Computed example of a mutant assay.
Amino acid sequence: MLAFEFKQPLEVTTAYGDGYIWYMIDYGPHADTLYTVIIKETGECWQMCHKDFRVKTNTTLGIRKHYESPQNKAVRSQAHTNSAVKQ
């Protein structure tokens, strides 16, 4: 197991709103890495897998693209699955 506390939290977008990655726990190759994300608006702490958030635009880090929210992606994916079943 590897645990890492971010000295400079990374800003992310989640289904719960914008937040910061505060802590990361890697349990090894047979389990997902868990990230503790603090939501800016509510102060809630959530543990999430990498598929549950997107890194926010940060030109200093070279991240220039605005990525789709994980929540919108899940809704669109579900709609695509449902339309394929109906056909």
Rank of each mutant, 00 (worst) to 15 (best):
K51Q: 07
S69G: 07
A79S: 10
N82W: 10
T60R: 10
D52R: 00
H80V: 11
Q78R: 15
R76E: 11
Y67M: 09
G62E: 06
K56P: 00
G62K: 05
R64M: 14
K65V: 11
V55S: 02
C45P: 01
W46A: 06
R54C: 06
Q71S: 05
W46N: 07
R76I: 02
W46V: 11
S69V: 03
H80N: 07
K73D: 01
D52S: 14
Y67N: 02
I63A: 04
H66C: 10
V75Q: 08
Q78N: 13
P70I: 05
V55L: 12
K65N: 13
D52G: 04
K65Q: 12
E68H: 02
H50T: 09
R64T: 12
I63W: 03
Y67I: 01
N72L: 06
F53T: 00
K65E: 15
K56S: 06
C45D: 06
C49I: 11
N72P: 01
M48T: 01
V55E: 07
G62A: 09
T57F: 01
H50I: 10
Y67K: 08
C49S: 10
R54A: 11
F53M: 04
C49Q: 12
I63F: 13
G62L: 08
T57V: 13
T60A: 04
N72F: 01
N58R: 01
P70V: 07
W46G: 00
N72H: 09
S77D: 07
A79C: 07
K73F: 04
V75Y: 04
Q47E: 15
C49D: 05
C45N: 06
Y67A: 13
V55N: 04
H50C: 08
H50A: 08
N58S: 13
L61R: 15
R64Q: 05
A79M: 09
K73Y: 11
Q71H: 06
N72G: 01
K51S: 13
L61S: 08
R64F: 15
I63L: 10
V55T: 12
Q78C: 05
V55G: 00
C45W: 14
K65P: 00
R54S: 11
S77R: 13
W46F: 12
K65A: 12
R76W: 03
R64A: 11
N58V: 02
